[in-house]
Design a protein around this nucleic acid. Structure first.
Lengths: 157, 157
DNA sequence: GCAGACATACTCGGATAGAGTGTGTCCGAGTGGGCTTGG
DNA sequence: CCAAGCCCACTCGGACACACTCTATCCGAGTATGTCTGC
């Protein structure tokens, strides 16, 4: 079970975008320079966040990415699931219905207990991530961070 | 983020072994037939559970696998981590220290908030899985299940 | 001085190659049981 | 009839190919800007 490396990239990118002034944008190239990441691949992953509705992209000069919604309404879960998908890491393939010990269809009307327990664990993980928004992440940073980020990321204080 | 397919296999195998009488064993070939799985690969994965201390293996005729400890002391977490490893799915590579926006070493003495939040979510997942033991899984099955499993798995009622 | 049209440079978006991990398979070492044989 | 020794079949354990996803890269379509020209 392993999350893509780009998960960390996008979490940090989203947190940085949340520190910009309302309406301001940062391009994929700027974000890549800010974290020393491969620009082309980062741009591809940022598209995933756009499709998920977390970011908005504008093309053309002075364009780039910005948050599509207030930072308080974007949770860590939305970002993570935009990158990695929403499917559960445990996929029940109903092996209890196969082989010599196969159970009849009647006995399988109630779902497999093991699958239920794994789903519960996944829900606990999701709830934990959904409990934190980008706004809370920003609030935990020192007050000097946002101006510094704006300066080094976009060049405008 | 995806768990190996063998995770489901080993959860069901462990649950089946827990239904055997104390001291009884089932071979990898029997378990593979019982669930219609590739025997060789299943055997390889069962070794992981032996190394993790969840199962015990005996060689030679009439040998096979059995639980290494009482079913009440084997949690789902131990099985899952034996297959997939204990490392967190989110690996913080400290990109905040790289690139144009690199923070100084002093500012990074306290760990990255994003990494902390991701670690919290992973702990929530682990706690959820650690809360359920194999004994509780067996207890949730209908009373007719254990004899049936013993019969179809090992041939002995 | 002003408005409109144009060329431009910058942006995102999708389609295309390469590496690492999980998946599947095979064969060899070790061991307990069952048979044979001798007493 | 009993016991000891031997052979064997069955078990696990580790070493070897294949496939799929993540990683990385490139080039093309589209657009807001800035400039130039004509009125």
């Amino acid at each position: 079970m392993k999350l893509p490396v780009s998960t960390e990239w996008l979490l940090h990118c989203a947190a940085s975008l949340a520190q910009l002034e309302a309406g301001a944008t940062a391009s994929a190239a700027q974000l890549a320079q800010y974290f020393d990441l491969p620009a082309a691949y980062l741009a591809k992953q940022l598209q995933a966040l756009v499709k998920a509705g977390a970011l908005a992209a504008t093309t053309g000069p002075r364009g780039g990415f910005r948050l599509a919604r207030p930072a308080s309404e974007i949770t860590l879960l939305q970002i993570v699931e935009a990158v990695d998908g929403t499917s559960s890491p445990y996929e029940c393939r109903e092996i209890r219905q196969q082989g010599r010990g196969a159970l009849s269809a009647e006995e399988c009307q109630n779902p497999c207990i093991l699958a239920e327990k794994m789903a519960e664990a996944h829900e606990a993980w999701r709830n934990s991530l959904a409990a934190t928004s980008l706004a809370e992440i920003i609030a935990a940073l020192p007050p000097s961070a946002p101006p510094r980020t704006r300066l080094r990321l976009t060049g405008t204080s």
